[in-house]
Design a protein around this nucleic acid. Structure first.
Lengths: 240, 240
DNA sequence: GCCGATTTGTCCGTATGTATC
DNA sequence: CGATACATACGGACAAATCGG
């Protein structure tokens, strides 16, 4: 399946912006101009541009034009808005990932687990504890809960490499939406044991519920991040 | 100016979902059905639905339908993805906001300020320190930098109520995009003095650059949150 | 396994409104 | 006022995925 046209245009404009073809605050060519460059319809171009808007690359102004508001990230950011596996984040930042599986268990969700994860009570789950290293430093302690029927065949070996790669490439699963909540929590004994927290006594916690292409929630994960390496990017637009 | 049609449809569907008209995991009526109910074109309806997708309310599935994946938030969340003033957040959660202005100064950005905030060196700025209370508890310590030429007439009195309300309602400014970075930082002396941190030794920090309708960055703010009341929601979609 | 009906995804062309200059 | 630019809305065509007979 060839990639969609609007996605091609989006990618092309995005790389042009990232490589500095347009100055910060400069106006992009007008819609009509871009329609001719890409030989596409107005709707198709507008879809590409509107994706750039939600990604925080440009800002449209009625009657004026489209302004470039992209600035390169000042520091290497570990996580950005978007669903990205640990491996993918690491590679994007040119760092070496490693994952150690501390626990690989099969459990049945009781009331307590159900309340915490959002899985129905009685659901058959894999429960994993994984420690993620970046360039040799332990940075993230993950508590993963996977719906067993949705991720059949998961093994400890897969969990040591990349679960997402397995789900997408082997099982052909489409991963679509993830609802996340960020909080700051006091460290626990297990945090203290595995993460090198120094004199921090708390850490950044990202709890996420992830849905597959069938709209089924198949994963609940609590990621406990060492605070000095935690950086989470986000882009918000105001719609009243 | 009457509200756009797609926005009306979006709101109607959203409240129907929120009020439980559709079960969690239930399919919504098909596009064709909804087109007839709302008496609109296919594009208009699809725009409304796609907004629901990015907001994490529903999930579309080609060939199958549109699935409701909305669940009411388990706890009162202080901040969600989207630009919201402190007052607005408080009112949404049925809590009483109060703001105390600790500092109101006019400064010129030097190199150091420029690097931190993203304003050009030499820019004329307002610099404010504000303490936000919720139901009497001090929760957030804000360091605000506003571009003076964009927020003319700002006073301490306005800053004690709501700066955003002033900008939007008095100055007619449109607030559009905000780029945010979330980190966890060690507490400083001023944090310790004003926020009741208990035995936490660090806090959640949200740094944001906000752009107005002209695509001009007019605000840089660093919000330092007391960790036990900090909760940040986010919704992510995977697009390869 | 095939076929047709249903449902969402992509793309196009056009008309009209609104804001800016 | 007219020209330019983005915003909204409509309708139609075809593709791709799913499901039931």
């Amino acid at each position: 399946m060839p990639r969609a046209k609007y996605a091609d245009i989006y990618r092309d404009l995005k790389t042009r912006i990232e490589t500095g073809e347009y100055e910060f605050q400069e106006l992009l060519p007008s819609e009509n101009h871009l329609i001719q460059t890409y030989n596409c319809s107005r709707n198709t171009l507008r879809r590409a541009v509107s994706t750039l808007v939600t990604d925080g690359y440009v800002q449209t102004m009625q009657g004026k034009g489209v302004r470039n508001i992209y600035r390169p990230a000042p520091q290497t950011t570990f996580t950005i808005g978007g669903i990205e596996s640990f491996r993918e984040s690491a590679i994007r930042n040119h760092q070496t990932p490693k994952t150690r599986v501390l626990l690989f268990a099969e459990i049945t969700a009781d009331q307590k687990v159900s309340r915490r994860t959002g899985f129905p009570a009685g659901a058959e789950l894999y429960y994993l504890q994984r420690l993620h290293y970046l360039d040799g430093r332990p940075l993230i302690l993950n508590h993963n809960y996977f719906l067993k029927e949705a991720v059949a065949g998961l093994t400890k070996e897969i969990a040591e490499y990349s679960i997402y790669a397995y789900l997408e490439q082997e099982l052909g699963m489409a991963i679509v939406t993830s609802k996340r909540v960020m909080t700051v929590e006091k460290m626990t004994q297990i945090d203290e044991k595995y993460l090198e927290l120094g004199d921090y006594n708390c850490l950044a916690v990202v709890s996420s519920q992830t849905y597959n292409g069938d709209g089924i929630m198949f994963e609940y994960t609590q990621s406990r991040h060492r605070p000095d390496y935690f950086c989470f990017q986000d882009n918000a637009t105001r719609h009243v």
